[in-house]
């Protein structure tokens, strides 16, 4: 399974999102949510990082630390927890 991680302040609200994305991917993706303080310990084999919109200002700082693509989740998808749209965003970036 391909690995994607979500990063927000405490990994709390992205936790809800992670499940939705996994469902939308038909379990082809393994999506985990982490707090900003800990995500660096979980980078093994990660193909993409998605950042919660509430800390979108950290995207450049996170990108500096990792080699995989980093994007922020669009607020409107985040609000309704639209796993499908974010899944689409992921495969647009790293391929299906």
């Amino acid at each position: 399974m391909r690995k994607v991680i979500l990063v927000c302040n405490a990994g709390m609200s992205t936790g809800i999102m992670a499940k939705k994305i996994e469902e939308a991917s038909g379990n082809t993706l393994e999506v985990k949510a982490y707090g900003e303080a800990e995500f660096e310990d979980h980078l093994d084999g990660v193909e993409m990082i998605l950042v919660g919109p509430q800390i979108r200002y950290l995207v450049p700082n996170i990108q500096e630390k990792v080699s995989c693509p980093v994007d922020s989740i669009a607020p409107q998808h985040y609000g309704v927890m639209n796993g499908k749209a974010v899944y689409q965003q992921i495969i647009d970036r790293i391929g299906a």
Partner: peptide, 26 residues
């Protein structure tokens, strides 16, 4: 209405992101 349904349970547990980004209030 949809956003209310998605957001009410997280809001009950003091997680406001779905409402803030969904309505959006932001």
């Amino acid at each position: 209405r949809t956003i209310g349904r998605v957001g009410i349970v997280p809001a009950f547990f003091n997680i406001s992101e779905p409402i803030i980004f969904g309505v959006p209030l932001m």
